[in-house]
Design a binder for these strands. Structure first.
Ligand SMILES: [Mn+2]
Ligand SMILES: [Mn+2]
Ligand SMILES: [Zn+2]
Ligand SMILES: [Zn+2]
Lengths: 180, 180
DNA sequence: AGGAAAATGAAATTCATTTTCAATTAGAAT
DNA sequence: ATTCTAATTGAAAATGAATTTCATTTTCCT
């Protein structure tokens, strides 16, 4: 039941991965309006409809650019837009996911988070157990090693999940492994 | 609220990892009675009680030796032992986890599974999307590479999660990436 | 405009997990 | 062996995120 209508024309990378080493976050606003145009085109192509709600939700989602839960995105939107329901936010995020505009992530807190990213892109995560910040990385050597390991089992990898949980540089002091 | 009373004396490796390359499974019965003795000692030490239910549940769990859900273990036990409730199975698995005799695993199906394992051991998983078989591996080079990547971020890893999803050697034919 | 199909949103449902609570049991103390 | 207390049990209820339902509204094609 996943990726039912995933048929995006091209990758359209909006990646700004790895721009935030050490820092917790970096503002990085790729042309949101362009993304929105693409979505609109996609909807038209599929016979789906462009609605005021979708526009607002998608705008806010892309502006956020983070790993956000449906609930949190809803709350964010709800502050300014009382008339948009949680269900619609939820469904819009699912729509974006199935369309390849977003990716679902399930980290250790077992909350479904979404990030604006095309399905073709890939990166893994470092999650700080203290401040909750989520960093991203891509590592070709790692991907190759994964293939090698899988190969030894005759296993063909379709997707993988790799997450590091620990303490970010800013929270080093709270890490039980160091001082304390 | 995790690992509240984890204080096992020594590693006591029962690992039989990597013994099943290619094969889906290998019978591998390490001394269950020994494990049970350890648990009994642990309970005594902590002021907890040894009960008929715990004995039955733990026996069945260790005999299974798999990545099993509380529900499945309950069903398995329930066939022979109608009077043991799900809640007790659930709680016993939690107890084993907090005591370091078992590990909780959450794969993509979002069901909590348990495997008999001492807390010090570590391995990662390959999960077949077709037959559901779960293989295990350990790779030192991988662990080192992970540390290296984390290091570049000034990140201190406490735990990590790495899972490969794809098709095992026996299900290769069903892999959409090959023929089809 | 008219109409069909899609979207909305409040409420209900699902489903694994976790908690509650009254009754039972283990095992230490007497 | 009996008593006593804290731990355990298990049925039932609660939780909480994710998902579905359904009556109503909206989009957008003709
Ligand atoms: Mn990410
Ligand atoms: Mn395992
Ligand atoms: Zn941090
Ligand atoms: Zn398989």
């Amino acid at each position: 039941m996943n990726f039912i209508f995933l048929d995006r024309p091209s990758p359209l990378s909006l990646t700004c991965i790895m721009g935030n080493r050490g820092k917790h976050k970096t503002a990085c606003p790729p042309k949101i309006s362009e993304k929105k145009e693409q979505l609109k085109a996609f909807l038209r192509r599929k016979g789906f409809k462009s609605t005021r709600q979708r526009d607002i939700i998608v705008t806010e989602f892309l502006k956020t650019g983070e790993h956000i839960t449906a609930e949190d995105l809803y709350r964010k939107i709800n502050r300014k837009n009382r008339e948009i329901g949680f269900t619609t936010v939820y469904r819009t995020l699912k729509l974006l996911t199935k369309s390849g505009f977003a990716t679902e992530r399930l980290f250790a807190d077992n909350l479904t988070r979404y990030e604006p990213l095309s399905a073709e892109d890939h990166h893994d995560h470092l999650i700080c157990l203290s401040c909750g910040s989520i960093m991203e990385f891509e590592n070709l050597k790692m991907e190759r090693l994964q293939e090698k390991i899988a190969g030894e089992f005759g296993f063909c990898i379709i997707t993988h999940k790799m997450e590091f949980y620990g303490y970010c540089s800013e929270c080093r002091d709270k890490c039980p492994r160091h001082d304390d």
